[in-house]
Design a protein around this nucleic acid. Sequence first.
DNA 1: TAGATTGTTAATCGATTAACAATC
DNA 2: TAGATTGTTAATCGATTAACAATC
Lengths: 222, 222
Amino acid sequence: MTRRIPRATVARLPAYLRHLDSLGPGQQTVQSSDLASASGVNAAKVRKDLSYIGATGVRGVGYDVEELRNLILRRLGLSTDLTVVLIGAGNLGSALARYKGFDNRGFHIVSVYDIDPKRVGKRIAGIEIRHLDRLEEDLERNPADIGIIATPASEAQGVADRLIAAGIPGILNFAPTVIRVPPGATVRQVDLATELQILAFYLGSRRETGSTSSLPERWRSG
Amino acid sequence: MTRRIPRATVARLPAYLRHLDSLGPGQQTVQSSDLASASGVNAAKVRKDLSYIGATGVRGVGYDVEELRNLILRRLGLSTDLTVVLIGAGNLGSALARYKGFDNRGFHIVSVYDIDPKRVGKRIAGIEIRHLDRLEEDLERNPADIGIIATPASEAQGVADRLIAAGIPGILNFAPTVIRVPPGATVRQVDLATELQILAFYLGSRRETGSTSSLPERWRSG
DNA sequence: TAGATTGTTAATCGATTAACAATC
DNA sequence: TAGATTGTTAATCGATTAACAATC
């Protein structure tokens, strides 16, 4: 019954969810074409994605918004809230600790760790910064679902090893380095500078081909 | 000669670059297998990627580190530094303004904008926060290459429209909403909560299949 | 020459899309 | 019934990989 869900489909489900959340309470149904234009894909792909997760719509009508929303949440494993520990209370780590988009969507940062004595003991967004030495004992008492790494690159692999040894199955890594985890654990990598570098490539090719002049009138500069 | 470089290849070039940058000055050559293990892909794929950008190695030896580094930089359009404007000096925006990884890799944030009177006039990382009303006149005087959007979702599309009308060809969007740009312009989307949601899926399937017990000994918790 | 590693082919795999029958 | 939209097939496209000849 539940076939394997392709990676590319999983990566699009949050976008569908975001669109469903943006609809007013009056909107009881949604069409594949709506979801498609709201998430920048083809309508056929939306229907295929939804069929992978076992969603069924009504021909001539569309999909029930509430039902679809619940199904996506369930399939993503978000039926219950998840707890998160954050390692690294520097510049980026502090911003992540304060970021409202996590709590809003059911990800609760329960503790923040650092090794800098100037930071340990202070609070960010109401959460006390604890010394990284406490990580294992804390996690033994209160297991968490996800670890976010916002340390310098040099520390990232070591921190990841400790998180996984302490039973954390999933890591979101913001340090600009690839980290290795054993089978069964999962990492996702977000590298901010890499995003700009990829963007630079597409600007570069645009400049070379001189495609500025092919921009529609209203978009042209000057 | 220069064939089109596949999207997936472009997305991996920054990872190769990062590995080359991590090598000591003693390392004059690098093998496809090194690059592969450092960036989590197959060695054949590395060689294919490198052949797309026109890199040539020496059979039995490998690739020249310095030459390869320069070639990747050139192909990504990073031979010269790029200028960046940042819109939104809130929590995340401020962290991005202070993020050292941008400047280090040749992306210079030249100005920061906000509409909140409590923020306008203050400084982050030495850069004065200007009122968003000034955006167009500033960009006319000093064109920029990239705009980073770190506003609330509700403002993101409007800001993107203004950036593009003012001649900015590339946007990195951190607001949790899809933004549309005309052909010729490029957007990349980074949605922090989406990353956690995708991660949650893989934890979920792990829990269901009970694969904890298949983890190698040293990784098991407890 | 012997050993090593590239460069490329060909097979495979997975994702995307057009198109249309099914059916509300 | 007529109109609309799903669900799925089949074709296409693009990315990945094993394998090995080429060659330093």
